[in-house]
Design a protein around this nucleic acid. Sequence first.
DNA 1: TACTTTATGTCAGAATACTGACATGAGTCA
DNA 2: TGACTCATGTCAGTATTCTGACATAAAGTA
Lengths: 154, 154
Amino acid sequence: MSQAASGIDLETSLGYLMKEVSSALRIEMETVLRPLGMTITHYSCLELLAQRPGLSNSALARGAFVTRQSMNVLLMALESDGILTRLTRPIAGRALPAELTLKGREQMARASAAIKSVEERMKRTLSPDEEAVLKDLLKRCAQSLPSDPEEQAN
Amino acid sequence: MSQAASGIDLETSLGYLMKEVSSALRIEMETVLRPLGMTITHYSCLELLAQRPGLSNSALARGAFVTRQSMNVLLMALESDGILTRLTRPIAGRALPAELTLKGREQMARASAAIKSVEERMKRTLSPDEEAVLKDLLKRCAQSLPSDPEEQAN
DNA sequence: TACTTTATGTCAGAATACTGACATGAGTCA
DNA sequence: TGACTCATGTCAGTATTCTGACATAAAGTA
C-alpha cells in the first residue's frame, strides 16, 4: 500500500533494480580497471577497436554510449599516448578510422581479462538457460525504450 | 566464434547488454526530466525522500547510487531552492534528516509520473510472469557482483 | 576509561561527460 | 545545378560526479 497508481515504488520498480545492477557493475568494473590506469569508457573504446578495427570517432561513441564529443577527448589522449592511431585525412566523408597500436592491443588484453572476471562473477549463479532468458528479456526492454526521434541525433 | 577464452564478445556479452539497456533507460529518463528542469539524481533524491522522509545525506547518496559528496552538492542546491529542508543540528550522530517541502512534493509528483511512463514503456512487451523472472535474475546478478570489501566505504 | 572503528557532513580540487555551436563532406531531390 | 538533409569532426563552455582529505559523533573493545 505504499504506492497508488501514480508513482514509482522503489521496492518493486524494474527501473530502480536495473539501476542497482548497472551501478554495481560499474563500480566493479572501475575497481578492476583502476589498477590498470583505465576508465570504463577508455576500456570500452579499446574493446570496440579490437573487435572492429577502423571504427570512427562517432561510431566508437555510439558503441561506448557516450557523446562523440566525449569520445573525441578520449581519442586525442589515447592517440598522443600511442595507444591508437587515426588517419590524418578521411578516405570518404569526414570519418577518420582508428586502429589500435601494439601497445594498445596489449593494454586492451589486460583490461579485457579483468572485465571478463567481473562479468563471470556477475552471472555465477545463473544457469546457461537463465542467462539466455535474461538476455532475451533485456533485449526486449532495450528495444522498447527508445522514443521515436531516432535515438536523438545530438 | 570471434572470441576465444580470453575476452569479451560485445555481441553476446551480458555486461554490454546491461549497459545498453541502462544507457537507453538513462537517456529516456533524462529526456522526460529535462522539461521539468531536473536531472536523474535530482529526481532520485526527491523520490527517495517522498517514500522515506527523514533520510540523511549519506542514505540518499546510497539510494541514488552516487557519492555522499555529490549528493551533498545537490542537497544544498535543493535546500536553497525551497524543495526540501534539513535540520540544522543533528538529533543523534551527525546525520541531518531531510524532508520535502510542499513545493518539493509537487515537483516530485510531476517527475514521478513522467518516470513511470518511461518504465511502463520499457516493459510494455513483458508479461507479468516475465517481469517477475527478469527481476529475480537481476537481483541475483546484483547480489553476486560486490567483491568482499563491503561495497567500498569511500 | 582510553583507544579503535565506523559512519557522517563538509571543503577543495580534479576528472569526466555533457550541451551548444560551427564547418565540412556526402547523399537526396526538385 | 542548387537547395536540403544528414552524419561527422571539432572547439568552447558548462555541469555533474568523482577522489582525497579532515573533523565530529556514536559504538565497540581492551
